[in-house]
């Protein structure tokens, strides 16, 4: 395995001016399944592809509510995501308690990027192994931010992170000019199309693997507001499992596909075993293990082993 002498701590620059540990942390984000965010002038939405660790496991949640007006999608280490999202919740609550004001979305993101930057400058610490897409709505309108383990935040019209997110980015870059004035159903359809592009060829979006979060006024075209107080108020809400069915159907209709969607072929049994074995490997050596890294960043070859619906290299921690 390739090694270099400048990656054993996170505070020493390599002669090329790189902090290798941070690059490895960014790789951890790429191993998580895809998350996509986009926004119009009224709404911000997140779409994620959920993974399960096997046939008997549930799909791991990738959308986290921070406050009424803020929520995140994660890609990377679930446990790091929990620490960071709890910190964001604390910040959001402090703003509400102390000033009676919902925290401005950008400042909520600044809060975690400050913490992440700290980890890149103190000896004995490691960078967070997770990336966030943060959506929110405040007095300056809807927002979409990306947070990365490097401690940077950027605001986007549309963005994607995680495994095979480049395919989604290609779709988003081609279409983002129409997002600004898109209605909520249109915006979600664009998001689902982008999410679809991150899938391997034999995989499909299903109610099990797709979850969608929305901030902004509800649309009864695709949402059932009778079961969500948050939707009624335009707050952050998540649609998944049976509740995401309506959104998926609307999307398939918009593409002129059969509404019920293609029936997914049962996964080959040997693929499951192989994926499970690999998961154990990459758990033992996170980030530095180039075998799982290469698997995730390798171009879609079609015959790559996979157990779930996401990219290859499924991992208990990587979501």
């Amino acid at each position: 395995m390739f090694r270099n002498s400048y990656d054993s701590d996170n505070v020493t620059f390599s002669p090329q001016g790189k902090l290798h540990q941070i690059d490895y942390a960014l790789e951890a984000v790429k191993q998580g399944s895809a998350a996509i965010g986009l926004r119009s002038k009224t709404h911000a939405v997140l779409l994620t592809l959920k993974r399960s660790t096997g046939e008997l496991a549930t799909y791991q949640k990738k959308l986290i509510r921070i406050d009424d007006h803020v929520g995140v999608a994660i890609a990377g280490l679930m446990s790091d995501a929990r620490v960071l999202s709890n910190f964001m919740r604390q910040q959001a609550m402090q703003s509400r308690m102390l000033y009676g004001r919902p925290i401005p979305v950008g400042r909520a993101v600044q809060g975690i990027s400050g913490r992440a930057q700290n980890n890149t400058q103190q000896y004995g610490r490691r960078p967070y192994g997770v990336g966030f897409l943060v959506i929110g709505r405040d007095e300056t309108g809807p927002h979409l931010f990306e947070f990365s383990p490097a401690g940077t935040t950027f605001e986007y019209y549309a963005h994607s992170i995680g495994a095979r997110s480049q395919s989604a980015k290609t779709y988003l870059e081609k279409n983002f000019e129409s997002f600004e004035n898109a209605s909520l159903p249109e915006l979600i359809n664009h998001g689902l199309s982008a999410l679809h592009d991150t899938l391997q060829q034999d995989k499909f979006l299903t109610i099990q693997n797709t979850s969608i979060a929305i901030i902004g006024p509800s649309s009864d075209e695709v949402e059932d507001i009778s079961i969500s107080g948050a939707a009624k108020r335009g707050n952050f809400r998540v649609w998944e499992n049976e509740h995401v069915d309506r959104l998926l159907r609307a999307w398939r209709r918009s593409r002129g596909e059969p509404e019920d969607g293609p029936q997914e072929a049962a996964p080959a049994p040997e693929a499951t075993t192989e994926g499970g074995a690999e998961a154990t490997d990459s758990t033992a050596a996170t980030g530095g293990d180039s075998s799982s890294t290469e698997a995730a960043s390798a171009p879609a070859s079609g015959d790559a082993p996979s157990s779930g619906t996401g990219g290859s290299g499924d991992d208990v921690e990587m979501q």
Binding site: M97, L98, Y99, G100, R101, P104, G106, R107, D138, E139, T140
Partner: peptide, 21 residues
């Protein structure tokens, strides 16, 4: 901070909540 995000400043209610606390 608002120079970077153009978020409106504290409203009277925000200042009052802070004072009460």
């Amino acid at each position: 901070v608002s120079l970077t995000d153009t978020h409106p400043p504290f409203s009277p209610q925000n200042i009052y909540t802070y004072l009460s606390n």
